[in-house]
Simulated scan of single mutants.
Amino acid sequence: MSLATDFMDIALMIAFVAVALAQLLSMIRVVIGPNTGDRILALDTMVVNAIGLIVLLGISQGTRIYFEAAMIIAMLGFVSSVAYARFILRGDIIE
């Protein structure tokens, strides 16, 4: 192994730990959030963290399929966050 590969492996491991810790903290915020707005924001943050973990997994394995999955999850996460926030604020999603 070369020195650049070793640094890449170390950087990926640090990134995995950091994003996993952020995911854990977001899960805690979902459980103990004082109000519904905090819980919605924590769920949206969890989607972003999940996308980060999927992208990191794709980088570490060197395959492209994870990036396509991350794009699909990003689109679904955005739409679901908007729909849930709208439901909480107005009581219905479709007017």
Rank of each mutant, 00 (worst) to 15 (best):
A4P: 02
M27V: 10
A15K: 07
I14N: 10
D38E: 08
T63I: 13
S80V: 06
V48T: 08
Q61V: 11
L25Q: 08
M13Y: 13
T63N: 05
F16L: 12
V19W: 04
L41F: 10
L53A: 07
N49Q: 13
A50V: 14
L12Q: 07
V82Q: 00
Y66M: 09
L21G: 08
D44F: 01
G77N: 07
V48H: 00
I88A: 08
I10S: 03
R90K: 12
G58K: 01
G52D: 12
D6K: 14
V55E: 08
R90L: 14
I94F: 10
A74T: 15
I88K: 01
L43N: 04
D6T: 15
M27D: 07
A85F: 01
G58D: 07
V31C: 06
G37D: 09
A20R: 01
D6V: 13
A4F: 11
L56D: 13
I94G: 02
A11P: 14
T36E: 12
V47H: 09
S26A: 15
I73M: 15
G77Q: 02
F87W: 04
P34W: 03
V48M: 10
T36L: 06
V55Y: 08
L21N: 03
M71V: 12
I65T: 13
I40E: 01
M75S: 15
A4C: 00
T5F: 00
R90G: 10
L41G: 05
R86I: 06
A69V: 15
D92K: 02
I73D: 08
R90V: 12
D92N: 05
P34H: 06
L43V: 04
N49A: 15
A4S: 10
Y66T: 10
S80H: 04
Q23S: 12
R90D: 11
T36G: 09
A11D: 15
I28P: 00
I32A: 07
L76N: 03
I59K: 11
L41Q: 09
S81K: 01
N49V: 10
A42E: 03
A50H: 14
I88P: 03
R90C: 05
I59D: 11
V31S: 09
I40G: 01
F16D: 06
I93L: 04
V79A: 07
V79W: 00
F16T: 06
A69G: 04
V82M: 00
E68D: 15
R64V: 07
L41N: 11
S80P: 03
I73Q: 14
A11T: 15
N35D: 15
N35F: 13
D92Y: 05
G91Y: 09
T63G: 04
L89M: 12
V48A: 09
S26F: 13
R29F: 06
F16W: 08
T45R: 04
Q23P: 00
G77I: 08
G62N: 07
M75N: 07
S2F: 13
D9L: 10
Q23F: 13
M71N: 02
M1P: 12
F67L: 15
A22D: 09
L57K: 12
G62D: 06
S60T: 11
A18Y: 05
L25D: 02
S81P: 04
I93W: 01
D44K: 00
